[in-house]
Design a protein around this nucleic acid. Structure first.
Length: 573
DNA sequence: ATGATGCGCGCG
DNA sequence: AAAGCGCGCGCATCAT
């Protein structure tokens, strides 16, 4: 069952559609539901397990969750439209070509019917959101047509050029759209739930590193002491060590000839001021980024509730807004603590990107190494005389496009042992250098070349040509990484969606189950009652294997998940 | 005063 | 030990 939910002046419009987006005979005209009755109506209809089709998950779902309504599945027109408008799998369709034309001619973002975002405004207290703009909204008919157009494009994905991607393009893209929409729901659910965060533990950690909480706008004691020490050691009585300019001058006056004030460059010097300076930088960062101010701003009632931005990174990774949710430093992870009677299950996919590369390239030799729980150890044994560190640097260098340093020097050695895997990323790099698009396993494509790249193609002089080559190589490094990072994001999206499905199934059975509370590229955190730990761990592992098979079928490559059951986040890993 | 940009550093 | 991919954020600094 497909149910369109659209904003309407009198509340919301509901319409049942068929799979291809035509109105269901039973509902030729949308049903208008007042804002007051909307929650109840949605809750009732959910019994029939529909796929809710809406403009943006973020416009509808948070308010429904706040009202206690959880839904099973949706179709996010904005996220799916963005994928379809750019995917190589649908590049030949009218949908993508119209979207492309609109972006170029009118500076509008695709998909065409969805710009600008319509607020589900005027829907009573439930949907009050002063942050939403009052802009022209889209009629149910606009959204229905948009959905039909997207389904049409999807159905054509098996078109010209399909063999280049090994077929199955429609199924893969369909899977990606489902996973992306599920991701949008998970993001809203995780924001609603929040990460369990013990404020008093956070404060203990801060006090340990920085001293007692200072008055607003003042440096904590430890930073004051280090500042005084640095002023003396560098003979600069008024130095502000937070200012790179002042710091640079002071360092130079003392014969410390650095070109930047970055940590790794400072570490080269043996001057007595370096050690306290590095300590200052470390603590200053903690204070500024995750200190008392952060705690006051972002943690409420024992929960950290960041906003996740699904589709926020072109590769398909999520971004986040507010509180630096994807950069929680190790120093303060001790504050992430399970509730009484609960545990945190922290699981991460071990060495995800190299394993994805093995599967993408179908490199049989590297697949042997990937049978090892520790892929880098396997690679080291095969081609690097057992030197794990070398194997790791070489492989990551291949994925990132390293040319210099140890990583660059190891490339020939890696290429000899694994010509297929290295050839795969080299090919992606050459495509990017030539201005072409590359695509993830499930069909998310890289953006077209930047204006900078296009302009550089006009170069005439030798100087301009060097510049053009540099810009091309930079794009090559991006597309080289895109195929791996993007496919890893495909895998992670499927992992997450499969895990959510299993956790919901456990709950529906009446089995105690945990809740997803955090997701970070290749890592998930489930907060669960102690009695549910075993079932949740199994769900996480089964979901990982399911994700592998959804992407690649039954292949002889493992995607092992390392699982830690802990009271606090700092005890994971 | 306010907004944009660059640096540096946190995470994967 | 290192400089190659993707982000967000706070501060200092520069431009308006």
């Amino acid at each position: 069952m497909y149910l369109l939910l659209a904003a309407h002046a009198d509340g919301a419009a509901l319409q049942e559609l068929t799979a291809d987006g035509t109105p269901h005979p039973a509902t030729p005209v949308p049903r208008i539901v007042s804002s007051a009755e909307l929650t109840g109506v949605v809750r009732g209809l959910e019994q029939r397990r529909p796929r809710w089709i809406w403009h943006r998950t973020q416009n509808w779902y948070p308010a429904l969750l706040a009202a206690g309504v959880e839904l099973e599945r949706c179709y996010d027109l904005t996220l799916c439209g963005a994928i379809l408008a750019h995917s190589e799998f649908t590049a030949h369709t009218a949908y993508a070509q119209n979207a492309e034309k609109l972006t170029q001619d009118e500076e509008l973002q695709p998909p065409r019917a969805l710009q600008p975002p319509p607020p589900p405004a005027d829907q009573g207290a439930l949907f009050d959101d002063p942050g939403l703009r009052k802009t022209p909204r889209h009629s149910p008919e606009d959204l229905r047509a948009e959905y039909a157009a997207q389904q049409e494009a999807l159905s054509q994905a098996e078109g010209p050029g399909a063999e280049r991607h090994g077929g199955n393009r429609r199924q893969r893209l369909q899977l990606l759209l489902a996973a992306e929409s599920a991701g949008a729901m998970i993001a809203a659910e995780m924001q609603h739930t929040g990460v369990p965060w013990r404020e008093e533990l956070h404060e203990q950690i801060l006090a340990g590193y920085l001293g007692p909480r200072p008055a607003a706008g003042h440096r904590p004691a430890k930073l004051e002491a280090l500042t005084a020490e640095l002023r003396q050691l560098l003979d600069s009585p008024s130095l502000n060590p937070d200012s790179p300019q002042e710091l640079m001058r002071a360092l130079h006056r003392n014969g410390i000839e650095v070109k930047t004030t970055r940590q790794w460059e400072l570490k080269e010097s043996s001057h007595p001021a370096i050690e306290p300076l590095l300590a200052f930088k470390k603590l200053s960062r903690l204070h500024a980024a995750n200190g008392w101010v952060w705690l006051d701003a972002w943690v409420k009632n024992g929960r950290f509730q960041p906003e996740y931005v699904v589709g926020g990174v072109v590769s398909g990774r999520w971004a986040s807004r507010g509180g630096g949710a994807l950069q929680i430093p190790r120093q303060i992870r001790g504050a992430v603590h399970a509730d009484p009677g609960h545990k945190l299950i922290v699981a991460d996919a071990s060495q995800l990107e190299p394993r994805v590369l093995v599967a993408l390239a179908q490199d049989a030799r590297m697949a042997e190494a990937a049978r090892d729980k520790d892929l880098y150890a396997g690679i080291a044994a095969q081609g690097f005389g057992g030197d794990r560190a070398k194997a790791k640097v070489a492989l990551l260098g291949a994925i990132y496009g390293a040319t210099t340093g140890e990583s660059g020097r190891l490339m020939p050695q890696l290429t000899r042992t694994y010509p297929r895997a290295v050839g795969f990323v080299e090919h992606a790099a050459r495509e990017g250098e030539a201005g072409r698009t590359v695509t993830s396993r499930l069909g998310r494509s890289s953006p077209p070349p930047s204006d900078r790249w296009l302009q550089s193609q006009q170069s005439t002089s030798a100087e301009e040509q060097r510049r053009a080559d540099s810009i091309a190589r930079s794009r090559g490094r991006f597309t080289r990484n895109f195929v791996v990072q993007g496919s890893a994001a495909d895998w992670a999206a499927c992992w997450l969606a499969e895990l959510r499905r299993r956790l919901r199934a456990l709950r529906a059975d009446g089995t105690p189950a945990g809740e997803l509370v955090f997701f970070l590229h290749d890592e998930v955190m489930v907060h669960c009652p102690e009695a549910a730990v075993t079932a949740c761990v199994r769900a996480i592992e089964e979901a990982a294997n399911a994700a592998k098979e959804l992407l690649f079928g039954k292949i002889p490559v493992e995607f092992p998940v390392s699982v830690a059951v802990v009271d606090s986040y700092d005890h994971a890993k």
